[in-house]
Each structure stands twice: as C-alpha cells, then as structure tokens.
C-alpha cells in the first residue's frame, strides 16, 4: 500500500502539473481539494481520467470523487480495491 501511495503522489504531481510540489509535501491523510493541495474541479476530472487510463477504473459519477479523492489514503484504498490493470 505504501508503494501505491507513493506512485499516486507522483502521478498526481505529473498529470496536474504541480510544479512546486514534491511527493513529501502531500501527507497521506491531508485533503487533496480545498485547503490541501488547492485542487479545483478540472483537476478532479483529470484525476478521473487518470484512474481510467492507468488503473482501468471508470468513475461514472463525478460526485463519487468527494469520497475517492478525500486524501491519498482514501484514493489508494479505492485503487487497490477496484483496479483492473
């Protein structure tokens, strides 16, 4: 699970162009949106594309993102349970 969390942090930084952020800046339990990394709704859509492209997970209702993208811990658990590739 720790490897997956690190992998997700690196992918998030890359696909969202978080130029001034390194994986160590993202706490496992910190909120990804709002006060955390300050991500916005377009970033959420980009993360949904990431889940589909890299893990074969289709999130059909963007509202589910509130739970899935709550934190790195939540995202890693979701990916571990649902990935198809």
């Amino acid at each position: 699970m720790e490897l997956l969390k690190e992998e997700l942090k690196n992918k998030i930084i890359e696909v969202l162009n978080l130029e001034e952020v390194v994986p160590g800046d993202i706490a496992d339990d910190a909120p990804l949106f709002g006060e955390g990394l300050g991500l916005d709704s377009i970033d959420a859509l980009e993360l949904i594309v990431l889940l589909d492209k890299d893990y074969g997970i289709k999130v059909t209702d963007p509202k589910d993102g509130k739970v899935i993208f709550k934190s790195i811990n939540a995202l890693a658990s979701f990916v571990a349970e649902n990935k198809t590739k």
Partner: peptide
C-alpha cells in the same frame, strides 16, 4: 481515447 479536461479548457 483519453481526452484531457485540463487541455480542453
């Protein structure tokens, strides 16, 4: 086919 929302905007 993975259209990027961040590019589209």
């Amino acid at each position: 086919y993975y259209p990027s929302p961040a590019v589209f905007v």
